[in-house]
């Protein structure tokens, strides 16, 4: 049961990194890929209907950690106090910017919202990699490499998403941005993933890390060939496999000196949580998938201006 809930937590974080990963990327690229208000609205419009639902994945992941692994939750958040504080500040800036973007009435205020979206996206995307990098390796280098990797992957993922969801000049620029970002993301992944993989405790994490790197390379090749849908599937696969490798490495010790069994709730709680999860999650996946179906069309700058 403890193993099962560890996998559920890993699944929730994976969902979060995949979904909000491209939200962060779109936010970070906002000033770089847009020329003028119409294109900014076009870019924000690609994530407008879905970003808030995507963010609930982290609320659920953290809430599920609180319920299923209270000691892990407590020690992680209090141990990384300032990083998590900055995560929250980043999410506030980004959330308010996105929600108010369509309600403000002057350019100056719109620019303030954009600033919130950009800084919030960049800061938070960096922090997730930095936090988990430090948890796994415990060094300053791992913190910086982890953060840079998560930020660059989010930007790449977001650029691929934009090239998939837009039409016109933004689409072309997003494709170029994806190729440029890949030049940084691929070496970082090659550097970082072997360090995450834990040969002794979970040999399969090596397989996940290797497969992740392959998926990333495939993603870059595919975006180069204008295969945007397939490229997005590849960057999604990369994030999924890399998160799997990360949680595989955390399995032996979710935090230094802590085991999952010590961290976990008792079996009664885990059992009732399992039933609730089994009842609720399929529904959540179904209606979130439906949302992407409803908003499946490419956005043009003309349609939102």
């Amino acid at each position: 049961m403890v193993t099962f809930w560890f996998i559920v937590i890993a699944f929730l974080w994976t969902g979060y990194f995949v979904l909000e990963g491209f939200d962060f990327g779109v936010g970070a690229l906002l000033p770089l890929l847009s020329r003028g208000e119409a294109e900014r609205r076009q870019m924000i419009g690609t994530i407008g209907p879905v970003w808030d639902g995507n963010e609930v994945w982290v609320i659920t992941a953290v809430g599920a950690m609180f319920a299923a692994f209270p000691v892990w939750y407590s020690d992680l958040l209090s141990g990384y106090y300032l990083p998590f504080f900055l995560v929250v500040v980043g999410l506030i800036a980004r959330g308010v910017g996105l929600e108010w973007r369509g309600k403000v009435t002057s350019r100056r205020e719109a620019a303030l919202c954009d600033a919130g979206i950009v800084t919030g996206s960049v800061l938070t995307a960096f922090l997730w990699g930095a936090i988990f990098g430090h948890v796994v390796r415990g060094t300053a280098a791992a913190t910086v490499i982890g953060g840079t990797l998560s930020l660059s992957v989010a930007v790449l993922h977001g650029a691929v998403f934009l090239s998939l969801k837009t039409a016109g000049p933004v689409r072309a620029r997003a494709r170029r941005a994806a190729l440029l970002t890949a030049a940084g993301a691929v070496p970082l992944a090659v550097l970082a993933l072997p360090a995450v993989a834990d040969t002794a405790a979970a040999p399969w994490t090596w397989v996940a890390a290797l497969a992740a790197t392959a998926a990333l390379a495939a993603g870059v090749a595919l975006i180069g060939r204008h295969r945007e849908g397939a490229a997005f599937a590849a960057t999604t696969a990369f994030i999924t496999l890399a998160t799997a490798a990360l949680f595989g490495a955390l399995w032996r010790a979710p935090l230094p000196g802590l085991t999952v069994t010590e961290a976990a709730s008792a079996s009664y709680t885990l059992t009732v949580l399992t039933w609730i999860g089994l009842l609720a999650l399929p529904g959540v996946l179904a209606y979130q998938a439906w949302t992407y179906w409803v908003f499946r069309k490419r956005l043009t700058a003309a349609a939102v201006s």
Binding site: T60, F66, A67, P70, S265, T269, I276, A280
Partner: peptide, 14 residues
């Protein structure tokens, strides 16, 4: 966490 976390997780999920 064992008790208090459950309604929080349910709140997020449901």
């Amino acid at each position: 966490g064992d008790v208090f976390g459950a309604p929080l997780a349910m709140e997020a999920l449901l």
